[in-house]
Write a protein that binds this DNA or RNA. Structure first.
Length: 465
RNA sequence: GACCCCUUCGUCUAUCGGUUAGGACACCUGGUUUUCAUCCAGGAAAGAGGAGUUCGAUUCUCCUAGGGGUCGCCA
């Protein structure tokens, strides 16, 4: 693929969300295919009311956590306001824009007529453009771009194909607000141009914006970039992914114990799949070499937590990712206590249980069983006579073991079962219950190993026939 | 409502006019197992509907239906 200059341009009005993360990811992958390509990060903070420093930091750290890297320092859009205004004034003097003083009420009335079909033109302001008095005002006006009434525009989108919209569908949108600040529509175009962006990858909720923004490029005689409008991600119910579908912020997913590899693997498979591959496990380096944005599907896809869980389980089980679990423990209030108390023990618990969990968070409850010094079984039930007959002998046997090693314990248990000619469940299930408060779970040898001899005997000792 | 986009198993997808429509997750069954699980093997499960074009349509065209996006002095 040729050299591209692309960008990811979130507004710091919320935490980084799975949908935006996917856009960032696709930008990153696309730029990573060519060593000379660039990805810039621009914080679009022109809405000062809703933008915060916290959200900005959240976005930056979420991207870093996902291993999405960008070139140069992040750009802060609000620092370029003068430049944006300069362009707006240029458009004004070139007669490509005009001042407008319509009140909110006037605009609303007009808008209502347009939307109800009473007026076919999308022109929102009809009185200001040719009003000399308005055009010579020095303050208290907005600047609107002039969109021709006739003609149409065709976008050759990398993903959407060719899309045609009549100019009559486009309104004279605002470039400069009444308070003198530039709007998103102006700022994006100016900043993208100034950065040399030649390839824009963004959500297809922006598709319609192409037909507006295009005019600024045209009026300024700037080269129009290529566009790839990627389909949005939906929740299980088919609507745009949002909070009510579950955790959608990257940092929330991190806190639950999801891994970047799993999230990336899951996200990239929405709308794309690697060729000639039966399984769906694929990591960033491999994605970068196989992915081509042209292959991305045009239709929206549903984000599934079940599939994310599958990928996460796969990655957290990898031996090489054990370090990530340790990092997680150190950042988690509950697990922190345990790892400080006995690191080896928490690792042993994790290795025993990792096939059963889909995210690290689930380890909290499990670790609690083994670290609780006041452990009690929930009901002191009496087991079958069969079990009671053997319990004391079994207790003595365990007590007798000197070398507390997996193979030794395992052999002793097998031997005991054989000698007494009993099936495992009769002995094993109640034993597991006494040790973990659960009839099901890991092999009792594993449980003995986790608890250690002293604690194992303590727990067994509480049982009175 | 107007404009734009989308439509293959429940979900994510493969198929670039001729296939027993393939895979993955989830689900079900069986096997291994020291219970539960893991693991292994197998199974059920799809071209929204209707017209055309064609010797032949999931694939190309049109219509209908359904879904989504946009319609701000937000981005």
């Amino acid at each position: 693929m040729a050299e591209i200059i692309t960008r990811f341009a979130p507004s710091p009005t919320g935490n980084l969300h799975i949908g935006s993360a996917r856009t960032a990811l696709i930008n990153f992958i696309t730029k990573s295919k060519n060593i000379n390509s660039k990805l810039y990060l621009r914080i679009e903070d022109t809405d000062k009311e809703r933008s915060t420093e916290e959200f900005k930091d959240n976005i930056l750290s979420s991207l870093k956590w996902l291993c999405i890297d960008w070139d140069n320092e992040p750009q802060i859009q609000s620092q370029n306001i003068n430049r944006h205004c300069e362009i707006a004034n240029k458009l004004l003097t070139d007669n490509k824009a005009y001042k407008c003083i319509c009140s909110e009420n006037e605009l609303n009335e007009r808008r209502e007529k347009i939307n109800s079909g009473k007026i076919t033109s999308k022109k929102i302001c009809v009185s200001c453009e040719n009003n000399k008095e308005v055009q010579s005002l020095k303050k208290d006006y907005v600047i609107r771009i002039k969109i021709p009434i006739d003609g149409n525009e065709i976008l050759e989108d990398i993903i959407q194909g060719s899309v045609e919209v009549d100019n009559s569908e486009i309104d004279d949108y605002v470039l400069i607000r009444k308070n003198g600040t530039p709007t998103y529509m102006l700022s994006v175009v100016v900043d993208d141009h100034d950065l040399g962006v030649n390839f824009i990858i963004r959500g297809d909720d922006h598709l319609n914006n192409y037909f507006r923004q295009k005019f600024i490029y045209e009026y300024m005689n700037w080269k129009v970039p290529n566009y790839a409008h990627i389909p949005l991600i939906h929740g299980e119910d088919g609507s745009k992914l949002s909070k009510r579908h579950g955790a959608v912020n990257l940092m929330d997913l991190k806190a639950q114990g999801y891994l970047p590899d799993a999230i990336i693997n899951n996200l990239i498979l929405l709308g794309w799949s690697p060729k000639n591959q039966d399984d769906e496990i694929i990591q960033l380096d491999n994605i970068i070499s196989k992915f081509d944005i042209k292959d991305l599907s045009k239709s929206a896809s549903i984000f599934s937590y079940k599939k994310l869980d599958y990928f996460n389980n796969y990655y957290l089980r990898q031996e090489k990712n054990l370090g990530l679990f340790i990092d997680y423990c150190q950042s988690n209030l509950h697990l922190q206590k345990y790892i400080m108390q006995d690191k080896e023990k928490i690792i042993r618990i994790f290795n025993t249980y990792k096939k059963d969990i889909s995210k690290y968070e689930e380890m909290i409850k499990i670790a609690e069983i083994y670290f609780n010094i006041n452990f009690e079984i929930s009901k002191n039930e009496q087991f079958q006579e069969d079990f009671n007959n053997y319990f004391n002998d079994f207790f003595k046997l365990i007590n007798k073991i000197k070398k507390w090693e997996y193979e030794i314990i395992n052999l002793e248990i097998k031997d005991f079962l054989k000698k007494n000619n009993i099936k495992f469940p009769i002995l094993g299930k109640p034993i597991r219950y006494l040790l973990t408060n659960d009839y099901n779970g890991p092999s009792i040898t594993d449980i003995f190993m986790i608890l250690g001899k002293k604690q194992s005997l303590e727990r067994l000792n509480k049982y009175k026939i």
